[in-house]
Design a binder for these strands. Structure first.
Length: 105
DNA sequence: ACCTTGACGGTTC
DNA sequence: GGAACCGCCAAGG
């Protein structure tokens, strides 16, 4: 299973698509909210690398969650101005070779 | 069974 | 960019 690489971000819709649930981005957000800090299956879930399609952090600016997410992203070199992140530079785009490498034939 | 609530998204103006 | 609108759907009241 692959996770979003550090230093990169993905949007809710993108994750929904990868999960075979096109158009159900909200469901992804809701699901992330239920993930314990410790993660599931002994895997830590990098929820902070998921933002909305407008390239913004989806928490009210100034809220505790907002600040925590912003900080963790910045800790891994992702540039965050206000709530905005330049998807053009930081959005995760798995390339073909990477997909083929992880695919079980 | 009905209504509300979301860590959303695409379209349009 | 930004705001209004509408579509989406699982959970919980």
């Amino acid at each position: 299973m692959q996770l979003i690489p550090q230093g990169k971000v993905a949007c809710y819709g993108q994750i929904a698509d990868l999960a075979g649930l096109p158009g159900r981005a909200r469901l992804v957000g809701k699901a992330l909210g239920k993930v314990p800090k410790s993660g599931w299956h002994g895997q830590v879930v990098p929820w902070f690398r998921v933002i909305n399609s407008q390239g913004k952090i989806s928490f009210p600016p100034g809220s505790e969650n907002f600040e925590k997410q912003k900080q963790q992203l910045q800790d891994e070199q992702v540039v965050v101005l206000g709530a905005r992140i330049k998807l053009k530079d930081f959005q995760w785009q798995p390339d073909l070779s990477e997909i083929l490498f992880f695919l079980e034939f």
